[in-house]
Design a protein around this nucleic acid. Structure first.
Lengths: 338, 338
DNA sequence: TTGTACGCGTTATCAG
DNA sequence: CTGATAACGCGTACAA
C-alpha cells in the first residue's frame, strides 16, 4: 500500500532515487542512500504497484492464461500441469480459465487476459466449425499478439495464432481403429462428442479412413457431450440396438468410460461382448483399465510454456502418441473361437 | 491499443470529454460530440486500459482467483464450476491457480492476485499443520483484505479470512464410519492422505470418534498422497497384511478408487471381501460405483462466488453433506451369514 | 456543455 | 551519484 512517494519522504530522497533502489535499476546509487531507502521501505512495508509498472512500461505481465473447455475434464488438468512445470521456476503464473465450451466465454477470458497484458495465452480446447464468433476471437488474438503476447493453440482452431503444439487427432484415431481391426473386429463404431467440434471431426475422419482401408463399413454416432454421462447414455442405446457393434472407439476417455460402465450396467460384458477404446489416457482411464491412445498432454503444456518463455512467435509442433493396451479390448469372439 | 489521447485528437475534443463518453460517466455530453467521439473510437478500435483505470481508481479488478491444490483433482473442478456459475453473469472472471499443495506456490499466486487487485480469492484446499509459511500467507491475506478484496476459505486453514464456507469434514467421516459400522463391520480402517493436512486430521478424528463410540478399535494408516496412486499402493500393502480390515473409509474419492482397483488387482473382491467408502462424490466415483459421502462442492463454490459479489466480509457457512450408497460397500459376511 | 489541470504510482531522460 | 520533470493512460474536481 505504501507508494514510492511515501518512501522517498521518509528517507529524505527523491522518488526517482527510491525507484532506482527498490526496483532493478542499473543506475548507480550510493550505499548510504540505498540503505536509507531500504529501511524506509521495510518500515512502511513497500510493495511496488505492478499495475503502475505495467502501465508505465507497457510490458507483458507474468501471467499465462490457459483457456480450457471444462475445468472438470482431466484432459485439461494434465495440460495445465505441463504448463506449470515449465514456467513456475521462472516466476510465471499459470491461470486456468474455463471457456465452458462456448466461444462467448472464451472471448471474455481473452479480453481479461489482454486487459491484464498476459505474457501468453494457451488455447487448450478445440473450436467449433463455422463458429460465428471466430472473427471476434481472431481480432482479440491479433491485438494480443500485436502487443507482444504469445498465443498458442493446443487443439484444432480456426484462429491463426503465434504457434501450434498438438498431437495428431486423425492419426491417433486411425491407429486405435487399426488396432481394433487387428483384433479381428468387423463391426466397429465411433462414438463422437457433440457435433461441430474440430477434434471430433478429425478423430472421426481418422476412424473412417482406417475402417475403409480395411474394406469395412464405418458406423458413427454422436453424443451430446464430451463427458462420462454422454457415453453412459450412448451405451444404453447401443446395447439395445439390433446391430450392436463388436468394438467401439470413443472420442475421448471420459466418453469411453461412460460406455464401459453403461454396457456393464446393462449386463453386457466388456471386453468379452464388446471392446471399448478411448483417446487421451487421462488418469481415470486406469480406474477402469481402459485401453486408450496416450496423448502427450503434459508434454504439450510443457512445450507451450517454454515457447511463451522464449517468445517463440511461429512454428507448429506435433508430438507423438501411442496406444496403451489395457483390459477393455479383446480379440473378437469369432476370432477367439478359431 | 489506441489511447484516449488519440481519440480526442481525431474527434477534436479534449481527453476529458472523450473519457466521459467512453466510460460510464454521468457527466452530460451533447449528442453531437458524443457521436464524434464514438465514431473516432470505433475507427481507431479503442479499448480502455483497464490497468490505468485500476491505477487511477484503486478499485478491485473483475478477477476472482481460486487457489487449488491440484488441477487434476476433480474436487477442485467441481468447486471452480460452482464459483463460475455464480459470477460469470456479472462479468467476473474465475481464474484457477494451482498451489500444487505447497504453501510457497500459494504465496506466489496470492502475490499475483494482490498485484492485480483481484476482487476475491478463494482457498479451495486445506492447509498444513505447523506450516512455517503461514505467517507470510496471513500477511498477504491481510493486505488483500485491507485493500478491499474478499478472501474466503473453503477448507480448514490456519489463516483468518473474510469468511469461511465449507462442509463438516469431521461429521462427514463420522457419518460414513457409522454407516460402515451399521453394515456390521468390526474391523474398520481409515486410509488418510499425507500427514499434516487439516482435512486429513479432521476426517481421521471423525472416523475415530465413530469407531470408539461403537466400542471398536480404530485402525489408521497414512498414504503419501491424496491421489489414486496412493490408494492403489496402500491396497497392495493392506491386501497382504495379516489383520486385513473388513471395511475402509478413505480420506477422499481418489484414494478410495485406488483402493478398490488395487484390491481387485490383487484378487480381493469389493465389496464381498472388503468394503470401501470415499468422501466427496466427485464424478469418477460413479465410474467404479463408489459408495461415498457427497460433499456440497459446487454449492460451496457458488456460495463463495456470491459472497465475493456481495462483498460479504464475515461469517461462516457450513453446508450439508449426505451419504451416497453405491456398490463398493456391503454388509459384513458374518452378518450376511446370519 | 466543454476544457484545463492534477493526481494515481511508476520509470526514463536530462541536468547538475 | 542525485533530483526535477515529463510521461504512461486514465478520471475528475474545478473553472469557463
Amino acid at each position: 500500500m505504501a507508494s514510492l512517494q511515501e518512501i522517498s519522504q521518509r528517507a529524505n530522497v527523491s522518488v526517482a532515487t527510491a525507484s532506482r533502489v527498490l526496483n532493478g535499476s542499473s543506475h548507480p546509487v550510493s550505499s548510504q542512500t540505498r540503505a536509507k531507502v531500504l529501511s524506509a521501505a521495510e518500515a512502511l512495508g513497500y510493495t511496488p504497484s505492478v499495475l503502475a509498472q505495467l502501465v508505465r512500461k507497457g510490458q507483458r505481465s507474468r501471467i499465462i492464461g490457459v483457456i480450457v473447455g471444462d475445468v472438470s475434464d482431466p484432459y485439461f488438468g494434465a495440460v495445465a500441469r505441463g504448463v506449470e512445470e515449465a514456467v513456475a521456476d521462472d516466476g510465471y503464473l499459470t491461470m486456468i480459465a474455463s471457456g465452458r465450451r462456448t466461444t462467448a466465454a472464451e472471448l471474455d477470458h481473452l479480453r481479461s487476459l489482454r486487459d491484464h497484458q498476459a505474457a501468453g495465452v494457451i488455447f487448450a480446447s478445440s473450436g467449433y466449425e463455422n463458429d460465428p464468433l471466430t472473427e471476434q476471437a481472431q481480432e482479440l488474438v491479433d491485438s494480443l499478439m500485436a502487443s507482444g503476447s504469445i498465443v498458442l493453440a493446443l487443439a484444432p482452431r480456426d484462429i491463426s495464432c503465434s504457434g501450434r503444439i498438438a498431437f495428431d487427432d486423425r492419426g491417433a484415431a486411425f491407429d486405435a481403429t487399426r488396432y481394433l481391426i487387428g483384433l479381428g473386429h468387423k463391426e466397429i463404431a465411433f462414438v463422437g462428442g457433440p457435433g461441430g467440434f474440430h477434434t471430433s471431426t478429425h478423430r472421426r475422419d481418422g476412424f473412417e479412413a482406417a475402417v475403409r482401408s480395411a474394406g469395412l463399413t464405418p458406423n458413427k454416432r454422436l453424443t451430446g457431450g464430451f463427458e462420462y454421462e454422454a457415453g453412459y447414455r450412448a451405451a444404453q442405446h447401443i446395447a439395445l440396438s439390433p446391430e450392436r457393434p463388436e468394438a467401439i472407439l470413443a472420442v475421448n476417455d471420459d466418453v469411453a468410460i461412460g460406455l464401459v460402465v453403461g454396457f456393464r450396467d446393462t449386463g453386457l460384458r466388456v471386453p468379452a461382448d464388446i471392446s471399448v477404446c478411448g483417446i487421451h489416457d487421462t488418469r481415470p482411464a486406469s480406474y477402469v483399465g481402459l485401453t486408450t491412445v496416450a496423448a502427450p498432454l503434459s508434454e504439450m503444456g510443457h512445450a507451450a510454456g517454454l515457447a511463451i518463455l522464449n517468445g517463440e512467435t511461429s512454428g507448429t509442433t506435433v508430438l507423438p502418441h501411442h496406444l496403451v493396451e489395457r483390459t477393455t479390448t479383446a480379440p473378437s469372439s469369432a476370432r477367439a473361437a478359431r
